[in-house]
Amino acid sequence: MADPEKLFKVDVVTPDGLIYSHRSSIIDMRAIDGQRSIMYNHVPLLTPLAIGDVKVKRSREMNQVVDHIAVSGGYIEFSNNVATIIADSAERARNIDVSRAQAAKERAEKRMKEAREKHDERSLERAQIALRRAVNRISVYNSKK
């Protein structure tokens, strides 16, 4: 008889509350120092996250379900087979309003152009972050297809 699949709990929390809670066989995410993957019985860790796609694989079987979550920074803490992501903002791919994300992307590009013309480094930096967030949301939305 095969060993039962080893799953661990994954929770994603934002200032608005719990937005995701499932069991997973592996999660992939982008930390500020590079790509990370976590599996059952991983060593404890606490690391800051970059703007990116968190992929939660809920099964290693043939019918693997992968949930995509757009996160805009935050932290992941893993211990005792519980992964907790505390994010500044997070959205599941199925909940992303892609037209709103596209509008945010266009606004950010416009603000970047204006900031460059005015040589306003601080505004340029904020616009670049807004652009990365919008592009990430669009990319995560498209990953669900």
Score class of each variant (00 low, 15 high):
71 V>K: 05
92 R>A: 13
48 P>I: 03
120 D>Y: 07
91 E>T: 02
84 T>F: 06
120 D>C: 06
141 Y>P: 00
142 N>F: 07
7 L>R: 15
70 A>F: 01
130 A>V: 00
64 Q>K: 11
46 L>T: 13
64 Q>C: 08
40 Y>C: 01
18 L>T: 10
10 V>H: 06
64 Q>A: 15
117 E>T: 09
57 K>I: 15
73 G>C: 07
22 H>D: 15
98 V>P: 07
78 F>W: 03
68 H>E: 04
44 P>T: 08
87 A>T: 07
128 Q>S: 10
83 A>C: 06
65 V>N: 05
96 I>Q: 03
83 A>R: 05
3 D>K: 15
28 D>E: 14
57 K>L: 09
83 A>Q: 05
116 R>V: 11
91 E>N: 08
18 L>Y: 11
53 D>Q: 07
58 R>G: 12
67 D>A: 12
143 S>L: 15
133 R>Y: 01
141 Y>C: 05
4 P>N: 10
48 P>C: 06
21 S>R: 15
60 R>Y: 11
93 A>Q: 05
129 I>P: 01
94 R>I: 13
134 A>T: 01
84 T>G: 05
130 A>F: 01
122 R>K: 10
56 V>S: 05
107 R>A: 07
117 E>R: 13
11 D>M: 14
112 M>L: 14
113 K>T: 15
37 S>I: 00
132 R>S: 12
120 D>M: 07
58 R>I: 08
109 E>A: 10
145 K>Y: 13
28 D>R: 14
61 E>I: 01
20 Y>L: 09
91 E>H: 08
15 P>Y: 08
35 Q>V: 10
66 V>W: 04
29 M>H: 00
139 S>R: 14
27 I>H: 03
55 K>L: 08
95 N>R: 10
14 T>M: 06
62 M>I: 12
59 S>D: 06
60 R>H: 12
92 R>H: 09
92 R>Y: 02
92 R>T: 10
27 I>K: 03
131 L>H: 01
7 L>A: 08
100 R>H: 10
83 A>F: 03
110 K>F: 11
77 E>M: 11
50 A>F: 07
107 R>C: 00
37 S>V: 04
118 K>E: 15
31 A>L: 01
108 A>H: 00
32 I>M: 15
71 V>D: 02
141 Y>K: 13
135 V>G: 03
59 S>T: 09
31 A>T: 13
64 Q>E: 15
90 A>M: 07
69 I>N: 07
46 L>N: 08
42 H>T: 02
102 Q>M: 09
56 V>F: 05
11 D>H: 13
90 A>H: 07
44 P>A: 06
2 A>C: 03
88 D>Q: 11
